[in-house]
Design a binder for these strands. Structure first.
Lengths: 154, 154
DNA sequence: CTGCAAGTTGAAGTCCGCTTCAACTCAAGG
DNA sequence: CCTTGAGTTGAAGCGGACTTCAACTTGCAG
């Protein structure tokens, strides 16, 4: 158990379910060698990739974007500390921006809902576009124009 | 167009698609009267409910939880500023907690990924349970125990 | 060599928050 | 009255991130 890890081992060590690891592989986020009997064997470096994936998810980044980021790592050599640092630097900015928006939301919450005005449009709170919305999944919070529904409104 | 709003009007004024409004109604988040011809007519107070819903979503609260919160509003009278303030107070705490976690994540990102260590378990970053995860949609980030898959690991 | 845990696959299911569609009906101006 | 835009319904679809299942195969300890 030195050279490589089974999927169970990687799962245990990363805290990520085997099914999720297979899913990540399908999406091209991680890679595995195969044994003669077709079982996955992970290089230890995959542990770091998995860590990066989970942390990125906490930042609110989609797997697709994470994949793009990972794709930018050097293919030829094992990624260095600098490589990882470069990736996380970008995340850091997003995180900072997110924190900024949430802080604004909290402050507005005091002034705006707190007072009971809740007047939407006028209120900085009600601002679908700048969104803390990396979060929401399938649903786009609001389309540029609400070209939805048979008959939206005047 | 004084007493009540059509769904199109509510949509325009709230910025929420009619289909979403109908969806909210199905979930019991908002209510509407009906005309003789079975069309929805919204009281103006529903505007505030919709505002509250959207803002709550930005805080990262699920529609189900938002429904519970709205259910706690007085049914007999029109909710007062204090009623809304009470609800938003709870959100405020969650928002603050979230900001705290994200800030921690950002700081750790510098020290932990930044240096290239990324050592998972040891790292405060890698902490599925305290989660900034109100965000993620359908997917539970990690079950208490990963009792998933035919054979998870030892 | 046996027995059983761990691993394999593809297909289908789940959850959330909506959107889209088809097939109507309603409401209001010309 | 007729047209047209706005509204109605239930059912189905979507996107993202997985999980679950059934039906097998591997790998290793005893």
């Amino acid at each position: 158990m030195h050279e490589s890890l089974t999927i169970g081992q990687l799962s245990t060590r990363s805290g990520v379910a085997p099914s999720a690891l297979r899913y990540y592989e399908r999406l091209g986020l991680i890679r595995a060698e195969r044994t003669g009997g077709n079982q996955r064997r992970y290089a230890r470096t995959e542990l770091r990739r998995v860590a990066f994936i989970r942390i990125s998810q906490q930042v609110g980044i989609s797997l697709e974007e994470i994949r793009e980021a990972l794709d930018s790592l050097p293919a030829s050599r094992t990624p260095s500390a600098e490589d990882w640092a470069r990736l996380s630097a970008a995340w850091r900015e997003r995180l900072t921006e997110k924190i900024r928006l949430m802080t604004k939301l909290r402050d507005d919450l005091d002034g705006c809902i707190g007072c009971g005005c809740l007047s939407l449009r006028r209120c900085t709170l009600y601002n679908p576009d700048d969104s803390l919305s990396g979060e929401g999944s399938g649903a786009r919070l609001m389309l540029p124009r609400p070209a939805a529904d048979p008959a939206p409104a005047a």
